Computed example of a mutant assay.
Amino acid sequence: MSDLNTQLPERLSRPEETGLDPRLLVPLLRLLVDGDPVTIEQLASAAGRTPDQVRHGLAAVPDTEYDGQGRIVGQGLTLRPTPHRFTVAGQELYTWCALDTLVFPAILDRAARVESISPASGERIVVALDHAAGVTRVEPASAVVSLVNPERIASIRSSFCNQVHYFASADDAAEWLAEHPGAQAVPVAEAHRIGIELTRRLLDRLQVTASAADGCDCCC
Rank of each mutant, 00 (worst) to 15 (best):
A60K: 13
T82K: 07
A106C: 11
T64F: 03
A120T: 15
A106Y: 09
R14K: 08
P83H: 14
V33I: 12
V188Y: 09
A210E: 14
T199C: 11
R152K: 13
R200L: 12
T50L: 07
A154R: 04
G48W: 08
E10I: 08
T18Q: 00
L29G: 02
C220A: 14
P119C: 11
A89C: 12
S155D: 04
T95D: 10
N149T: 01
Q75L: 13
A173R: 02
V54I: 15
Q53L: 05
V188W: 07
R124V: 13
L8Q: 00
S159N: 04
P51F: 13
C219G: 15
S146E: 02
G195F: 04
L25T: 09
A174R: 04
D214L: 12
N162I: 06
A178H: 01
N149V: 00
P181M: 03
F167Y: 09
L8H: 01
Q184V: 12
S45P: 02
F160I: 04
R55T: 08
M1F: 06
D217Q: 02
I196Y: 00
N149S: 06
H192C: 07
I194M: 11
G76C: 10
A132W: 06
H192I: 03
I196T: 10
R205H: 15
S142I: 01
N5E: 14
S118Y: 10
V73M: 06
Y66G: 12
T199I: 01
T18C: 12
E123D: 14
F86N: 10
L43S: 05
A46G: 05
L24C: 07
S13A: 14
R11M: 12
G90L: 11
I156W: 05
A128F: 01
A168W: 00
R110I: 02
L77Y: 05
S45D: 15
E197K: 11
R23V: 11
V164E: 03
R193Q: 11
F167T: 03
V114K: 01
S169C: 08
L99H: 04
E10F: 06
D36Q: 10
T199M: 02
S118M: 12
R152W: 08
V38K: 07
